[in-house]
């Protein structure tokens, strides 16, 4: 069986360009899938992908960073840490990576929800070029990613500013080893008594994580009193817009939980 175990990103990208390979990070999704007849490109020795760093604007999380590693890092924002701390159980968190969570393409991926709500960007690399893409543009649909066959996810760029005022809730079928059935993350920043930024993202309820920037605009620039007035209309707008799928729980259940959490988020943060 052919398998590739590069130690540099350059080497990994070259193999990716030349061969038909499946990138393999922690393997926590791939082991379960147990695909037949594929060739793996193992990324676990590529230390360039395993760094957490920061620049003026972003916290930069390498795609090969594991959840356990992130939980220990002083650079990773609390909101991300909270979401990651609810993933599976220690064994999976020790192996599972940010890149794999994205690469799996699921709307239930807990770190991806945070990337949506924080307007994170992804650095995508290939041997030929590099590009940066907004996380919501990266997801084109259920299990459909904006990723070419010669590309790898290299880094996740999370904007540093304004992440302290957040709200997060995951609902799984139980308290450990549970995939999200509904997840919600919200951010609300105020400046001079007015809402400067609001973001609300819903995970595990549709084909991709859902976020509606158009609806969010309703509350931007509003005072607490004004926002309070608009609150019910705002929630109703979400209820009307969101088309949810059923899974292990019904679509109705998902919708009521989404609206309940959205309301609670507004009640607490406005």
């Amino acid at each position: 069986m052919v398998r590739y175990t590069p130690v540099t990103l350059e080497e990994a990208l070259r193999i990716r360009a030349e061969q038909d390979v499946v990138p393999y990070a922690g393997g926590t999704d791939l082991m379960v899938e147990n695909r037949k007849g594929v060739t793996y490109l193992f990324l676990n020795r590529v230390s360039e992908l395993q760094q957490i760093s920061e620049d003026d604007t972003y916290v930069r999380i390498g795609s090969g960073v594991t959840f356990t590693q992130a939980l220990k890092s002083p650079l990773v924002p609390d909101l991300m840490k909270e979401a990651v701390s609810h993933i599976a159980a220690p064994a999976i968190r020790n192996a599972g990576t940010f890149g794999g969570n994205l690469g799996n393409g699921s709307a239930k991926a807990d770190s991806v929800l945070i990337e949506y709500v924080t307007d994170a960007k992804l650095r995508i690399a290939s041997a030929a070029k590099e590009r940066t893409v907004d996380v919501d543009a990266f997801y084109k649909g259920r299990k459909q990613l904006d990723l070419e066959s010669d590309e790898l996810i290299a880094e996740i760029l999370i904007p540093k500013e304004g992440l302290d005022d957040y709200y997060y809730q995951k609902i799984g079928g139980r308290n450990a080893l549970a995939i999200s059935r509904v997840s919600f993350a919200g951010i609300l920043n105020k400046e001079d008594g007015k809402i400067k930024r609001i973001a609300a993202a819903f995970g595990a309820v549709a084909d991709t994580v859902l976020r509606y920037k158009e609806i969010e605009k309703m509350l931007i620039g509003k005072t607490a009193a004004e926002a309070g007035e608009l609150k019910e209309a705002f929630i109703q707008k979400y209820a009307d817009t969101m088309v949810l799928t059923r899974g292990r729980v019904s679509a109705e259940y998902r919708k009521s939980v989404c609206c309940n959490l959205l309301r609670d988020f507004l009640d607490q943060m406005i």
């Binding site: 139980r174 450990a176 292990r248």
Partner: peptide
């Protein structure tokens, strides 16, 4: 239909 451990959940000590 719920014939797997991801569809039929049993509690763990964390519950």
């Amino acid at each position: 239909r719920n014939n797997s451990f991801s569809d039929y959940l049993i509690p763990t000590t964390k519950d």
